[in-house]
Amino acid sequence: MTIEAYTKPDGQPERSLRLEHLVKEYTPGKPVLRDISFEVRGHSSVAIIGPSGTGKSTLIRCVNKLIRPTSGKIYVSGEEITRLSGRELRHARRKIGMVFQEFNLVERLSVMENVLCGRLGYVSSLRAWWRKYPPGDINKAFALLESIGLEDFVQQRADSLSGGQRQRVGIARAIMQEPHVLLADEPTSSLDPKTSVEIMELLVHLSAEHRIPLIINIHDVELAKRFTSRVIGISQGVIVYDGPPAELSNEHLKVIYGGEDWLR
């Protein structure tokens, strides 16, 4: 009940994500995630770092129950997600935007159609099929595409875009949901260094502008330190560092990734 207590000055409850003792076991007795708890609120951006195979993707997919957590509780803006199913779960998922490593666009649909995919949770299947979206959605999509520099590509098919442009479309799709939390799963891993920086800038900027808490899985520690206000280091399924990027030392990185030769 304490969760609902935070309220922004304009009366809207602050958007937040909160994990309590999250555990995920794919095979019983072998937890991938053991006892993960943290909370993110407002427009703060959090980077989750850790070695490959340590369950970062699992963690992010547990939040919207694409993967069912074994135990623990997850709250999005105060609403518990873990016990939901069916229609309730679908409605809860609308509040959780997700950006993917390989963009996960529908290649054969246009940029506009892909962006409007973010509204599918709000529009009936029949209206979606006939492309009868509310005018407000369309206007918002145009505005969003303009703000990310894709206004000239509205009717182009997604597979004609470059990697960076595709990821922008993926981000626009997530923002269209008007989410209460934005999850990004290795959003820059398929991109070149310059584009990676641009995408990180865009994510952080949109998170701040729309006041959406941002959680980014990322294996590039330098990018994480540069763009986020908080770093959570995970190793072998537990949080081993949680704090500001400035305090993340080589000692911490040794604990997170193991070994030290690579740090020289």
Binding site: N64, L66, R90, H91, A92, R93, R94, I96, G97, M98, F100, E102, F103, N104, L105, V106, E107, R108, L109, E113, C117, G118, L120, G121, V123, S124, S125, A128, W129, G170, R173, A174, Q177
Partner: peptide, 28 residues
């Protein structure tokens, strides 16, 4: 590819919409 299917499920799209938007364009 199940990637767009995953993305649309994550956005809370109903099953029929997932079929119409993420499956049909790939097989039409």
């Amino acid at each position: 590819s199940l990637k767009p299917v995953e993305a649309l499920r994550a956005a809370g799209a109903p099953f029929l919409s997932v079929i119409i938007y993420a499956v049909v364009p790939q097989v039409l």
